Simulated scan of single mutants.
Amino acid sequence: MPKDTPLNSLGLPKAPSETRVVVAMSGGVDSSVVAAMLKEEGYDVVGVTLQLYDHGAALAKKGACCAGIDIHDARRVAEEMNFPHYVLDYENIFQEAVIEEFADSYLGGATPVPCIRCNERVKFKDLLQTAKDLDADCMATGHYIQRMAGPDGPELHSATDSSRDQSYFLFSTTPEQLDYLRFPLGHLPSKDATRELAAKYGLAVADKPDSQDICFVPDGNYAKIIEKLRPGAAEPGEIVHADGRVLGNHKGVIHYTIGQRRGLGIGGLEEPLYVVRLDTEARQVIVGPKEMLATRTIPVREINWLGDESFISQSEWHLKVKVRSTRPPREAIVRPLSETEAEVELLTPEEGVSPGQACVFYAPEGSRIFGGGWIWRGH
């Protein structure tokens, strides 16, 4: 191949037919479109689907990813588009790397985000290594996020369609992984555009609903899963006001989350009360007025930094941060304590900041993502 060979659409100096791409296929419309698009462009596509759990009720459940029906759908797309497809049994890895930590974190009073750990520890680690073992030049996924070439290497940027942006769930993508990953849908203007492409390629999944829940909690009932994983976890205890008054009893700390107001079972009080803290050791749900939820300073650890300079090269970084996936980024000052720890000061206090959630860093202007870390204790 001559040195002046132009880059293909995946940014590699090869003809598409000589470029092998492993596509991580969940069985949904997004990853199916990626595989079909790359196959039509002439790439050497290999589809890989992960079996993450065998979950009885989840197998025919719409709205959960990586279940049995999804493996069938991914295989069907591969047959329609005529490229090889493999199913890898990652049940044990997923159980150890994601589900067990989810249970422990939840029992510790945190509000975990297992989808981030799955990307970090399973999809972008073990699956990415599998892609390299298959001699693939890169791995493509259906995530709504953008990888852009920068002066110092590839950069991570938010998706064009902010309503579909998945940057909050991908902040732990390392520079090395980013070098190998591709996200062909990140530039699309809307999900409708993806479905139009699915229809254009004649894919049977074109009208398939999006997954909504955590895949191993298909009905959204976290507490039921935790009780199954950790028998005895739903022990009763007291609901206590922040001023020390005992207001009632609860059926288990695992049924409550920080910021919760409804369903506390302590009516008849003049002021509306919210869950402000969960004390799992004392089996207490601590409640208080709304202003107690406001947090200005957040300790963050396990930081993955995606800036061009070292994280500790500055005493503070003026960035925007997102503390929940559903909230817009807010202005903040990030003060490094080490390469992987920082104190984040929110210029405007946020309510309901919870340990176990991610704190993701964004450029003050523009779409670039500078990484992020994990919120690790209450205020």
Rank of each mutant, 00 (worst) to 15 (best):
P349S: 07
V300S: 10
H318V: 11
R277A: 06
I303L: 14
L347W: 10
T297F: 15
V321Q: 09
T340M: 02
P349T: 04
Q284Y: 00
L319F: 13
P329I: 06
A332P: 06
W305D: 05
E341G: 02
P328F: 04
L337S: 10
T348S: 13
P349D: 03
S313E: 15
A342M: 03
E281N: 02
P299T: 11
E309H: 09
E343T: 14
P299I: 12
W317V: 05
V321G: 11
G307I: 10
R283L: 04
T280R: 06
V323Q: 07
V321R: 10
I298T: 10
F311R: 06
V323D: 02
G307A: 11
V321M: 10
E316L: 11
P336L: 04
V287I: 05
G307M: 10
L346I: 02
Q284K: 13
S315C: 00
L293K: 04
M292S: 11
E302M: 04
E291P: 00
H318Y: 08
T348A: 12
F311P: 04
T297E: 15
T348D: 14
T295R: 12
L278C: 02
L346V: 02
S310T: 11
A342P: 07
S338W: 04
S313K: 11
H318N: 13
T280N: 09
G288A: 08
R330H: 01
E309W: 05
F311T: 01
P289S: 15
R283Y: 01
S310F: 08
R327S: 08
F311L: 08
E316D: 12
E343N: 13
E302Q: 14
L293S: 06
T326W: 09
V275E: 03
I312Q: 12
L347N: 10
K322N: 10
E345Y: 04
V344Q: 02
E291W: 09
L278E: 04
S325L: 07
P299K: 14
V300K: 11
V323A: 07
V300L: 10
N304I: 15
V300T: 11
V300N: 12
S313D: 13
